[in-house]
């Protein structure tokens, strides 16, 4: 039996946790995350977004760039705040939609387990939105955030 998507997601969460700990000079980041420490959560979310970007890029050649949709300045970063990613694709495919659906479900399940009980009521965590060239050119939906001067989306992965 080989590693499934769930194993990969577990690895992503562990790496993100280690990254947050390293950036804060702590040995144990978990307790900070459980206390809703915004710095720890910020690093954790950034690294997780990057890992998701790497995974999607490796998985499908149609994925070109991955951005984090920024939180609004007055929005408080907590463990239950959804992480929205904008994925710029060459084209949408049935397989890509399926893998993202599976990824969202796996991340939610593993993240809830990791930060339980804080996240027990969470029903959405990773929220991946596809945009293509047409969306970019027309500045449609979340694609408008990529070139926004007011609240630009942060690129975390590029092909």
């Amino acid at each position: 039996m080989y590693a499934t998507l769930v194993d990969r997601v577990t690895g992503m969460l562990e790496l993100s946790l280690q990254y947050a700990a390293a950036k804060l000079g702590e040995t144990e980041a978990m307790s900070l995350l459980k206390k809703n420490n915004p710095d720890a959560l910020g690093y954790f979310r950034y690294r997780l977004a990057e890992q998701v970007g790497i995974f999607l890029g490796e998985t499908s050649e149609h994925v070109l760039e991955v951005f984090i949709y920024p939180e609004t300045p007055d929005e408080e970063v907590t463990a239950t705040l959804p992480l929205t990613l904008i994925v710029y694709v060459e084209k949408y495919t049935a397989a890509l939609e399926s893998v993202v659906e599976a990824l969202q479900n796996a991340v939610l399940a593993e993240y809830r387990k990791m930060l339980s009980p804080n996240t027990d009521s969470l029903s959405v965590f990773l929220n991946v939105c596809f945009v293509d060239e047409e969306d970019f050119l027309g500045r449609k939906g979340l694609a408008a955030a990529v070139g926004s001067l007011h609240a630009p989306a942060l690129k975390v992965w590029s092909r």
């Binding site: 769930v6 998985t59 893998v99 479900n105």
Partner: peptide
């Protein structure tokens, strides 16, 4: 082809 398998725990 590349295969991705997603099975819940």
């Amino acid at each position: 082809h590349k295969f991705v398998v997603s099975i819940p725990r």
